[in-house]
């Protein structure tokens, strides 16, 4: 193995789980996610000369994100065109009433489904913030949006996720 690939692997393979997690949530499909992770790593390797140091995880995740979005554009165009208008979904009055069921009772499958049902932009910022623990600045860089949009997007995404969850739990009971 030559020195460049060794250095590349040492720097970027530790972020394989992060890359997969993001791709998996953006595509909602295990098989496609794996293909896209592989493609992203190859692209990252080709651009490696342009990597000026700094945050290797964010750099890789930006490439994963862009690769996934190109794929969505080719294969799930409709999904990208769905406007994420909060009025589209009237909020559930139950959500803030005192008798609301405890979110802690939601099971893993319900959670997974509630997150999958979110529009892709919401899913993306929630995954980067809640699962990857990234800062607003890092998310803004990766998703190519202003920091203010990250903050307001997160507020709406969390609200919507909560509603999805509560609805699912109501159906269950």
């Amino acid at each position: 193995m030559d020195e460049a690939s060794a250095r590349f692997e040492q720097m970027f393979l530790p972020h394989l789980d992060a890359a997969h997690n993001l791709a998996r949530w953006l595509t909602r499909n295990g098989h496609d996610a794996e293909d896209l992770v592989q493609e992203s790593y190859l692209r990252a390797f080709r651009f490696f000369g342009g990597f000026k140091g700094g945050d290797s995880r964010s750099w890789l995740l930006t490439i994963v994100r862009n690769t996934c979005y190109s794929w969505l554009q080719r294969n799930r165009r409709q999904e990208l065109e769905t406007p994420f208008d909060e009025e589209m979904h009237t909020s559930d009055p139950q959500a803030f009433s005192p008798e609301k069921p405890l979110l802690a009772n939601a099971d893993g499958q319900m959670l997974q489904q509630a997150l999958e049902e979110l529009p892709v932009t919401f899913r993306e910022i929630l995954v980067l913030r809640e699962l990857e623990g990234l800062s607003y600045k890092e998310i803004a860089d990766i998703a190519g949006m202003p920091i203010g949009t990250v903050m307001s997007g997160l507020a709406r995404a969390r609200k919507r996720l909560r509603e999805n969850l509560l609805n699912a739990m109501k159906k269950e009971s």
């Binding site: 690939s5 393979l13 394989l16 890359a19 295990g30 992770v37």
Partner: peptide, 21 residues
């Protein structure tokens, strides 16, 4: 339960792809 880690084998696959480049 929501963090979807890379499945076994993906690392190998990625490494093979990089080294084959």
């Amino acid at each position: 339960s929501l963090y979807l880690k890379a499945p076994a084998g993906l690392q190998r696959r990625v490494q093979d792809a990089i080294r084959g480049e």
